[in-house]
């Protein structure tokens, strides 16, 4: 057993000495922050409700034509400043004096025909996009008012709720990504470590020492798993620090660890059968890409299970996680036997 831990220690020391693990952690942090901080911020740009909840711009709107339509009320409720103008020329002058952000021409409402409004926006792609995003809600309310007047009822108009884009992105992209990235890194570590020894023929030397093949493999797998587990724990702590609530914390941790273990075992198998780092790494990254895409289609995939566990889904729990333990329990002995055959040949 001492020899086992000697190899584990040697592996871990190699990682910390070369500081490659620091690069790996930086990459994960970088990807996570990039996608979370920026994409979330960005998606809320395109998410009018989230935007309206976070920022309340006081758009200044000039109204010409019918200055007493219910639209004024809807605009004011959305915290916009509405000013009525008697003539188009006055409104245009105010717009050019930068006293207005946009002008709306509202015709008289005749329930016998559709209302054809006109909107005058500043000629700037960015500015007009923003204005449109903010105006959408009050305009929709006015549209529904006009529909009611014409005998058309629209249901579900007053549902509350919170804008969900951020929530969905966080739990279905960021959390699974952080939980599985350590597994990805650990797999590629095992491939490097094994194929380097196989290619430079140091593996034989190691094997001639009083160590069984199972033990060498076990130690290498264990070392990679230790690194993965530390990272998983680190990410969970980081999420906690950012006040992101993870339900079923224990199961999430166990599931992430199990996926890491399965991934490491499969990588070790790839490395021993191909005995070539380049081809192993390529096959491995291909495998990861395919698995990642497949997890969006297949329901039982660990990615969705993590999401369900982390959001506290009623129907997901320990039993779903146990399936992965079963997979690992089957894979381990298969790998050891296959590896023995592959290497002794």
């Amino acid at each position: 057993m001492n020899a086992f831990f000697a190899i584990v220690k040697k592996e871990l020391r190699a990682i910390t000495r070369e500081r490659t693990i620091l690069i790996a952690i930086t990459i994960q942090l970088f990807i996570a922050s990039f996608s979370s901080a920026l994409l979330i911020g960005l998606l809320s740009f395109y998410d009018p409700e989230a935007l309206a909840a976070n920022t309340r711009p006081n758009l200044r709107i000039g109204i010409i034509g019918n200055t007493n339509s219910p639209l004024n009320l809807y605009l004011r409720n959305a915290r916009m400043r509405v000013t009525a103008f008697d003539s188009a020329a006055e409104a245009e002058a105010a717009f050019h004096n930068r006293a207005l952000d946009l002008i709306l021409y509202v015709p008289d409402d005749d329930p016998r025909s559709a209302v054809e409004m006109k909107m005058f926006l500043p000629r700037s792609e960015m500015l007009s996009s923003f204005i449109m995003i903010f105006l959408r809600e009050p305009l929709k309310r006015y549209e529904n008012f006009l529909r009611r007047e014409r005998g058309v009822t629209v249901n579900y108009t007053d549902l509350g709720g919170s804008p969900a884009t951020t929530f969905e992105f966080l739990y279905s992209v960021i959390v699974p990504m952080l939980m599985f990235f350590p597994a990805f890194v650990a797999g590629s570590m095992v491939i490097d470590s094994l194929s380097e020894e196989l290619e430079t023929h140091t593996f034989e030397t190691l094997w001639s020492a009083p160590l069984s093949l199972t033990m060498i493999f076990g130690a290498k797998i264990f070392a990679a798993l230790v690194v993965a587990v530390i990272q998983i724990a680190l990410w969970l702590a980081l999420l906690r620090l950012n006040r992101i609530d993870i339900q079923n914390l224990g199961w999430v941790f166990v599931l992430a660890t199990l996926t890491a273990a399965i991934n490491i075992v499969l990588s070790a198998f790839t490395a021993t059968s191909l005995r070539d780092r380049e081809r192993s790494q390529f096959l491995y990254s291909l495998f990861i890409v395919i698995m990642a895409s497949a997890s969006y289609v297949v329901d039982f995939a660990p990615m969705q299970l993590i999401t369900r566990l982390a959001t506290g889904d009623y129907y997901s729990g320990g039993w779903d996680v146990a399936k992965y333990a079963l997979v690992l329990a089957v894979l381990m002995p298969v790998l050891f036997r296959a590896a023995r055959r592959l290497i002794t040949v």
């Binding site: 559709a114 409004m117 005058f120 926006l121 000629r123 305009l139 058309v152």
Partner: peptide
């Protein structure tokens, strides 16, 4: 005309 009673023509100043 009743289902979509509001149409807005966008102009740029």
């Amino acid at each position: 005309g009743n289902a979509f009673p509001l149409r807005i023509e966008v102009n740029y100043l």
